[in-house]
Nucleic acid binder design. Structure first.
Length: 94
DNA sequence: CCCCTGATTGTTCCT
DNA sequence: AGGAACAATCAGGGG
């Protein structure tokens, strides 16, 4: 129960932003969504974000580890991207 | 020593 | 321009 998944987590305690704030890396879902947005919507022409957004999440988890592997793999690659800025951010800020 | 929480990322859709 | 569901992700600070 560490993180209540209410969607849009933004309780109250706001952390202090950093000077260079290395924003963070994308998530496997981001890469997956990149490929699904055109696919899902292509199969459901005319459906609004409410339908696509929700359905995307269900499909995302329904995927197999190997299916999401490429997305997760990209997540790891993007993480490295963020890692470099993070390291620089720490180097410059320190 | 150990834990948590917040912040962030990107998509789509609409007003 | 931003918000909201959908999911993952990480880092740092505090007791």
């Amino acid at each position: 129960m560490a993180a209540p998944r209410e969607t849009k987590r933004k309780a109250g305690t706001r952390k202090k932003k950093d000077p260079n704030a290395p924003k963070r890396a994308l998530s496997a879902y981001m890469f997956f969504a990149n490929e699904n947005r055109d696919i899902v919507r292509a199969e459901n022409p005319g459906i609004s974000f409410g339908q696509v957004g929700k359905m995307l999440g269900e499909k995302w988890k329904q995927l197999s580890e190997d299916e999401k592997a490429p997305y997760d793999a990209k997540a790891g690659a993007d993480k490295k991207r963020y890692e470099s800025e993070k390291q620089l951010y720490l180097a410059t800020k320190a």
